[in-house]
């Protein structure tokens, strides 16, 4: 009996220790690289990034909706991790928003998506810094269409981006305000 109890306890511990998705607290959450946002329990954190992001959050599952965080991205590093040596995919510290939006479109197309479109970048403030914002859309390899937007700023510590995407049929409209809330609450700590 005691052995069963120990096993059950072990399983419970194992469950929490090995869960791939972590809950998000309703509190300020450190994403990494000095970036923090106000969390909410509607989100789930995927610790290993998707598409080379430093963190990925989702509500219904990464194939349906996601917020990707890129923090302190340095000069000369590729935006997404492709595991290949492609200088033409590297982020450069002197890039403009126009060039970052182009890079974003390239990365999406190379990830196997079709009908990739990016909107014109607009100047906005992000985490209190002069930044930019652009919309984007694409169809995943099975043809499901996604809408999204990217907000970011280039700082002395590197590039910071928060990118939201959700299915055009439902998730984009359903979760965009939650994503806007994350972006609106973003702070970048200056050391």
């Amino acid at each position: 009996m005691r052995r069963v109890l120990v096993l059950a306890l072990g399983l419970a511990v194992g469950l929490t220790a090995c869960a791939r998705f972590q809950p998000v607290q309703r509190d300020r959450v450190a994403v990494g690289g000095g970036l923090s946002v106000m969390g909410s329990a509607v989100w789930n954190r995927f610790p290993v990034g998707v598409l080379g992001a430093d963190a990925a959050w989702t509500q219904d599952g990464l194939p349906l909706d996601r917020v990707l965080f890129y923090v302190a991205h340095g000069d000369g590093t590729p935006l997404f991790e492709h595991g290949r040596d492609r200088r033409s995919l590297e982020y450069r510290a002197n890039m403009t928003a126009t060039e970052i939006a182009d890079l974003w479109a390239s990365e999406l197309a190379l990830a196997g998506n079709g009908d990739v479109r990016t909107g014109a970048p607009q100047p906005v403030r992000f985490a209190g810094l002069p930044g930019f914002r652009f919309d984007y859309s694409y169809a995943n390899p099975s043809g499901l269409v996604f809408d999204g937007f990217v907000v970011g700023a280039a700082t002395a510590k590197g590039l910071y981006l928060i990118a939201f995407a959700g299915t055009r049929a439902h998730h984009f409209l359903a979760y965009r305000s939650a994503a806007e809330h994350l972006i609106g609450s973003a702070e970048i700590a200056v050391e």
Partner: peptide, 14 residues
């Protein structure tokens, strides 16, 4: 009236 006119103006200002 280009969609990115505001952004280009920001580049000019910077």
């Amino acid at each position: 009236d280009a969609a990115d006119a505001a952004m280009i103006r920001a580049y000019l200002a910077e």
